[in-house]
Amino acid sequence: MRNNPKALTGLVALGVFVLFAVVGPWLAPFDPSTRSNDLLQPPSSAHWFGTTHLGQDIFSQVLVGTRSVIFVGAVAGVVATVLSVLVGVTAGYLSGSAGEGLSALSNVFLVIPALPLIVIITSSLPETSNLTIALVIGLTSWAWNARVLRAQTLSLRRRDYVEAARANGESTWRIILFEILPNLTAVIASGFVGTVLFAVISEITLAFIGVSDAGGWNWGTVLYWAQSQQALTQGAWWWFVPAGLAIALLGTALSLVNFGIDEYVNPRLRTRSSTRGVRMRVGFTPVLAKETS
């Protein structure tokens, strides 16, 4: 990881967001819900990101909202990752109809459009808190990773050392825990990061269409109010630009971390493709100038 600048940049940016999630509510200059007389003001030294139609400080809303975003992303990521490991590894390890059944289950969840499913479930729930939203997202978005893990497990199962362990009569659980799982770490990590990204976008999307933690703030609720109060037609660009940029930055940070993991897993992707002015090219191996030979 250390000599992978992409992953490092992503991890640092991610760390900053997590830090804001923890200390954001204390750092925020205003209470995000408190109204003031500065109605719909553009950014100023008092209100860095401007104010809403009720005079609320948008900077504080975005800062305080970070916690909900990171919380939902992390909880949904953990739930989905645990489920995907359970279903994926089991489906890959078990032969016969049990494995096939679990694999079919994850394929079903994969092709059912996730967002509409999450919408109908969350809007039918008696109450929506950050936790229930995170759980619904986690419970519906494990299928992709389960599929990837199943394929990986299938190929690991045929490796010599696993066959040897099985021939030695080691218990299935021991083999899975000590021979298979350690080799899946990178894939599981990449799946976790991907799910966090999906969960964050889903939570924000839900909040944007009006399903969110009552009274709480996240970047999606900021955008919900901006949209419903016609921020666009009033030219209040500052109302929706900061929250959107925050999403894009967090998303980019997560993608960068995943690129790092991808390059670790698939060495062909490592871009040391042009160093010191020599372009690596398939089919025409570069020839160094005579002097350097």
Binding site: S273, V278, V282, G283, T285, P286, V287, L288, T292, S293
Partner: peptide, 17 residues
């Protein structure tokens, strides 16, 4: 063989000759 025909895939490089 691949070096002399310039078919060696990255990160191969013909360094001289």
């Amino acid at each position: 063989a691949y070096g002399m025909t310039r078919l060696l895939p990255p990160p191969g490089i013909v360094a001289g000759g």
